[in-house]
Simulated scan of single mutants.
Amino acid sequence: MPYEPRSYRSLYTQKDLIHFRVLVEETDLDIAVRKERYDLKLEKLIYSLVQEERELLKDYIKKDPLFLSSLEPYEPFLNAPPSAFEMSKAARLAGVGPMAAVAGYFSEIAGKKLATYSSEVIVENGGDIWLKLKKTRLVGIFAGSSPFSNRIALQINPNLTPLGICTSSGKVGHSLSFGKADAMVILANSATLADAVATAACNRVKSEQDLEKAVNFALEIPGVIGALCILGDKMAAKGNIKIVPI
């Protein structure tokens, strides 16, 4: 599966917010906060947070390698770090392995930490987003070669946030997927959950006939409030979700 450079980030920069990047190994966060709340210390804070959480998770995986490789729900050891329990909990609801939730988890912990400093926060990690808003904003949809790609967006109202918005694709990116969707987008009360459900729902899409089934599957999971699935020039969407052209 080809890796898609994250050039899409420049398309959706919020002009009234300050954006900065935190990169720790494979965790690559694009972060936006209110301009008056930005301080270089925030970058260092999130870098340290991500680094510490990654080290705890990596050390745990050395003791429990099945946590890394399992493609089905998996119960971590009792001495596992909080990240393992949070990822496993979300993965259990979705019916996938715990690593399906890792990108959403790191978006979420960074976002929650920054929300104590800024009233508006957007954290994006390879298409997996945690956000808290004070005004209505648009979240663009990237769907590879689909004609919908970069032409539609989700309109997110502040009253829906904090919110996780995560995307899985069978054609774009480097994450493991058994589906063929150009984009499976999930809105949930947790980015960790949204990430796991996006993977599970995307896995169910083999043809255009599966779009509605995948969306319905996602919405049956507690905590999921909206779902959108794109394959070629076909799209299905349901739940508390508003799509607008861009």
Rank of each mutant, 00 (worst) to 15 (best):
I230Q: 06
E212S: 14
S168E: 02
G95S: 11
V121H: 04
T167N: 11
A196H: 02
A237E: 07
S83N: 00
A191E: 04
K58H: 11
V244K: 14
G239L: 04
P98W: 07
I18E: 14
Q51L: 13
L11F: 15
D59R: 15
K234M: 05
L17Q: 05
G104F: 01
E36L: 09
F67E: 05
I230F: 08
K134D: 14
L228S: 11
V185P: 02
P2S: 10
S169P: 04
E55M: 13
G226K: 08
P73T: 03
A227G: 06
I186F: 03
N240R: 11
L193F: 05
K213V: 14
A90N: 03
I18Q: 13
R21H: 14
E108Q: 09
K206E: 13
A110N: 09
L40V: 06
L57D: 02
L187R: 00
L187G: 00
L57V: 01
G223Y: 03
I122M: 09
L71C: 04
Y12P: 00
P65I: 08
M99L: 15
F77V: 05
S175R: 09
Q209C: 09
R34W: 10
K89G: 08
K238E: 13
A84E: 07
R204V: 00
T192Q: 03
E52C: 04
T136M: 07
R204M: 14
K44Y: 10
V215K: 10
M1N: 10
A194H: 01
V102I: 13
R34C: 14
A91W: 03
K113C: 11
V33D: 05
W130V: 00
S145C: 05
L17N: 03
L228N: 11
E86P: 00
S190Q: 02
S146L: 08
L49M: 08
Y117M: 08
G97D: 10
F142I: 12
L68Q: 08
A181D: 09
S83E: 09
A191S: 12
N203V: 01
A101C: 02
Q209E: 15
C202Y: 05
K213N: 14
I221E: 10
L133A: 10
C229A: 15
G226S: 09
D233T: 05
V244I: 15
K89E: 14
L49R: 04
D233A: 12
Y8M: 04
A214P: 09
S118V: 07
N240E: 14
A90P: 03
I152S: 04
I241A: 09
R9A: 06
